[in-house]
Computed example of a mutant assay.
Amino acid sequence: MGVQAITTLEGVRQIPLRSHSLSAPYLDSDLQSRYFDFGEDTIVRADQYIRLTSDRQGQSGWLFSKMPMTATNWMIEVEFKIHGAGHLHGDGMAIWLTEERGKSGKVFGSADNFNGLGIFIDTYKNSRPGVSFPYVMAMLGNSSVSYDKDHDGKDTELAGCSARGIRGAGTVSTKIRMTYYAETSLRVDLQYKNVDEWTECFETEQIKLPQTAYLGFSAETGELSDNHDIINVAAHNLHIRQNTSGRDKVGKPQARPYNPGGTKAPGSWRWFFLKIILFGVVVVGGYVGYTMYRASKRGSRF
């Protein structure tokens, strides 16, 4: 069966990406996935879900694509379910587009100090006054910036929104849809209130992802727990016809990767060197003035 292009937006063709999509039964006849690897506590229920963590304490699991995302512009829609027994639950799950793949760690079950995009569905509030949880947020990492779990990633947040009701949504299929136009914008929409009712979480501009980025999912539990299930992943390449897309951001500044605390802007360096030069001028001027003063004092003795 061939892959067919589907046109749903004016000037934009949605071409399915089989290499980054998932649906039941998930595994082939050898009980392996052709396009994804999984590890740690992840289990596969071929007729229902891929469970990253079960509703047990101290679990973590991950699921990562074997091939990097090659599409320049893409849309990824993920159906998932976060649920469990009891009134207290945690910690949450993450969706990744990063250079790293299949590495366990402390950031929702995956590695910290990542390079690329992480979108976190955080179900347990550590320290974010005035913010309602569950909370969905994006972070762009540059391999050197850590995610601050104690403060729920507040200092490194790119954008986010509260999504109260996304956990344990009952009969409504919970979904997240991410739409990326290279170096232009990233938009995240959520479905959890009613079927086919999408709520915009955020849209931000000037986003640049690594050239080699793998699609991944991870989750973790601590003292509190939940089931974190991936049910379906539908990835599409967005092919934009020239001169027809409203997304053509002509005249926008060049996109930059997120780099908090990293290299300073060129203007900052110019100001730094200018201050050094001015300091040198002051020192030289003071020395010349002092020399002339001493010379004049010696001349006044005769």
Rank of each mutant, 00 (worst) to 15 (best):
L186R: 01
T8L: 14
Y26T: 09
L224D: 01
T221H: 06
Y258E: 08
C161N: 08
E200S: 13
S185H: 11
Q4F: 13
V44Q: 14
D150Q: 12
I76V: 15
T179C: 07
S245C: 09
G299R: 06
W74Y: 09
A138H: 08
R270G: 03
A24V: 14
Q48C: 07
Y293Q: 00
F202D: 05
S110I: 00
S19Y: 00
F108S: 08
H87N: 10
R301K: 08
D150T: 12
G222R: 08
L209M: 12
M75D: 11
V283K: 01
R256E: 01
A295C: 05
S110R: 02
I119S: 06
S127P: 09
S268Q: 13
Y124K: 15
T184V: 10
M137K: 10
D122E: 13
T70C: 14
T8H: 14
E79T: 08
V188N: 06
V283F: 01
C161L: 05
F217P: 05
T7P: 03
L88A: 08
G153A: 03
I240R: 11
E223A: 08
M1Y: 07
K103D: 10
F80Y: 15
Y258H: 13
R13F: 03
N142S: 07
T123R: 06
N243T: 14
V131D: 01
L17R: 02
R177Y: 07
